[in-house]
Design a protein around this nucleic acid. Structure first.
Length: 593
RNA sequence: GCGGGUGUAGCUCAGUGGUAGAGCACUUCCUUGCCAAGGAAGAUGUCGCGCGUUCGAAUCGCGUCACCCGCUCCA
């Protein structure tokens, strides 16, 4: 992620301000001084979000026949979060560096040796001063001056502009307080002394039932995906789906973020749109089709093929999601990709691609598309002690025709791969047991997980659409105009309907007629106040792509040719055309669908 | 949580101890002939909140809350 500069911060402030002023996004609980890290969507924001939600749901379910939907509860049995690993990884003990407030996991501190130096504070000649005492570790072999220089740099970095340049900072009351050997009380990078270990729980806790004891603890889900895994068996048994297929879900998730920031980008309550797409393990593909299709630069990813393994399915979903972003106006000019390296990847993930958007505050993640193997289902199978396997008849029949030698070759190949993993690899007994189930047609599907943030998507749409330009007004004075250039599909209001003048009852009556015609089918806005130019400008500012104006020609003043025609004005070009009222609805519906 | 910054009308901001202001927006009326038009009138504030200093606080002090920028993240 790139660092934001001043102008991009200003750009962001303008967007935040517009969002509040025009009813897209408000700070939550503002009349009570707000509530950190949560936001409310106003009338236009609610429409925008709903349009995005509908676009995603349509693309995932209605336009495909291999994905079904789910709408699971936010509260679930806490055992789910033990199985998924969230209880452990979201509740680490953290320690904080006194010097920089950088945090480290308490169990990740390397032992260090050296001399401990304590300070009473720091100051500079410009009047900046801190009385916070701190101490730091002078590592064995480190020169005292380079050590002090480092402290000054860290202090300056942490104190911001007020502390001025690092070299102007004076360290106060230096005192040698002792020698330590193999101490885990100093930050590995900064050398600053670490404070006491504190629990750091990212999951929001609550209690189920009225007694509110420790036995009643439950969590607000930190992601929606786990509900899909937990309901995998029910969906399988009730909807006649066959691998490969997907289950998708839209819903709220909650994380106790330490530092919510960048407007709605990192919030404590947010909405996710997640798909778990279940596929056959590569070994099953190999048994059925002889081999797994290999990816190459010119591979055709447009139509899924039966011999695709996880790699092609993963790449397919990256492409599908890219096409989705294009369809809502986020094209290659604002989208970037980050393919995670082996070091980035969680131990259970095989590959993960982040789809990033160029926000004013930096290029940051909209969606992650992970190939997660069978980790989640196997965890839930283990913890719930319920069989979550899929029975694949085609696989069973294909395996029957396999010779014992080819079966053993597959086992040996897998054994070698597991051995290469070292300690995390499966034992020979485990591998043989797994293949025994596989040859009988049973397996836990592997999964490709495209997981998108709805609030982030809405924010990206707003940032991409935001445009300001200067234009001279009637008096020649330069004024700033704001336009949200939304794709018509996502725009909260599709069309504005205006009588040219409001003091002519015939114009007003006709305009209301047109409004009534469009209103049941499209999100419309009727406006008869102020001058026509101002009304156009108001709608530009909230991104309304079309405006319809009823004038004297509509009433037949210029003859029958123009009677019952209106002006259709296009937001981005400002161009106008005459359209028959009877053609209006089909024209507009086509343009916004 | 720590450091820095900010908090005055719906918005953008001015106001350094002495009667709370401007521009835009808004409401009503008149006018209106396609891109923030003109005229008239009008409404709008616990100066983020609390406590203190003072004859007197938007202004000074302390506390507190929220937001922004950095530090931990990955929807």
């Amino acid at each position: 992620m790139s660092t934001p500069d001043k102008s991009s911060t200003e750009q962001m402030e303008k967007i935040v301000s517009l969002c509040k002023r025009r009813g897209f996004i408000y700070p939550s609980s503002e009349i009570y001084d707000g509530c950190g890290g949560v936001w409310d969507y106003g009338p236009l924001g609610a429409e925008l979000k709903r349009n995005l939600r509908t676009a995603w749901w349509t693309a995932m379910t209605r336009l495909r026949d291999d994905i079904v939907g789910l709408d699971a509860s936010i509260l679930m049995n806490p055992a789910i979060w033990k199985a998924s690993g969230h209880v452990d990884t979201f509740a680490d003990l953290m320690r904080e560096c006194q010097l920089t407030n950088k945090r480290v996991r308490a169990d990740h501190v390397e032992p260090q040796s050296g001399t401990v130096l304590a300070y009473t504070g720091a100051q500079n000649a410009n009047g900046w001063k801190t009385n916070r005492a701190f101490s730091a570790l002078l590592k064995n072999g480190e020169h005292i001056e380079s050590f002090r220089k480092r402290l000054r740099q860290l202090l300056a970095q942490n104190a911001g502009d007020a502390a001025g340049k690092p070299e102007e900072i004076e360290l106060l009351g230096e005192e040698k307080t002792g020698e330590v050997t193999d101490s885990i009380d100093f930050h590995p990078e900064t050398g600053g002394a670490l404070g006491a270990a504190r629990p750091f729980n990212l999951m929001l806790r609550t209690y189920l039932g009225p007694t509110a004891t420790e036995d009643d603890v439950a969590y607000l889900r930190p992601e929606t995906a786990q509900a899909i895994f937990a309901q995998f068996k029910n969906v399988l048994d009730s909807s006649r789906v066959k691998v490969p297929f997907g289950i998708c879900q839209i819903g709220k998730a909650f994380r106790n973020e330490v530092t919510p920031k960048n407007f709605t980008f990192r919030s404590r309550e947010f909405e996710q749109m997640e798909l778990e797409f279940f596929i056959k393990p590569d070994e099953a593909i190999e048994i059925i089709h002889g081999s797994v299709a290999a990816w190459s630069e010119d591979a055709d990813l447009s139509e899924p093929q039966p011999n695709w393994g996880w790699d092609l399915w993963h790449r397919y979903w990256v492409q599908e999601r890219t096409r989705f972003y294009e369809s809502i106006g986020l094209g290659s000019d604002v989208i970037e990709y980050y393919w995670q390296t082996q070091e980035d990847l969680a131990h259970y993930a095989r590959a993960c691609v982040d789809i990033l958007f160029k926000f004013p505050f930096g290029t940051d993640e909209l969606e992650g598309i992970a190939a997660r193997g069978d980790f989640d289902l196997s965890q839930h199978q283990k913890h719930s002690r319920k069989i979550l396997e899929f029975f694949d008849e085609e696989l069973k029949n294909a395996a029957k025709n396999l010779s014992d030698e080819s079966k053993e070759a597959m086992v040996q190949k897998r054994l070698a791969a597991e051995q290469a993993k070292g300690e995390t690899g499966l034992s020979e007994a485990e591998v043989r047991a797994w293949f025994e189930r596989l040859f009988a047609g049973h397996y836990l599907p592997h999964v490709i997980e495209p997981s998108a943030g709805l609030d982030r998507m809405a924010l990206a749409i707003l940032c991409a659409a935001f445009d300001q330009f200067e234009k001279a007004d009637a008096k020649g004075k330069s004024e700033t105009f704001t336009v949200l250039r939304f794709h018509p599909r996502v725009a909260p209001i599709k069309v504005g309907v205006f009588p040219l003048l409001k003091n002519k009852p015939d114009l007003v009556a006709k305009a209301r007629e047109v409004y009534a015609l469009l209103k049941p089918h499209l999100s419309c806005f009727y406006d008869e106040t102020a001058a026509i130019g101002r009304r156009y400008a108001r709608q530009d500012e909230v991104g309304t792509p079309y405006a319809v104006t009823i004038d004297f020609e509509t009433l037949g003043e210029q003859g029958d040719d123009l009677k019952d025609t209106v002006t259709l004005r296009h937001r981005d070009s400002g161009q106008q055309e005459r359209v028959k009222i009877s053609d209006l609805l089909p024209r507009l519906l086509l343009a916004v669908s």
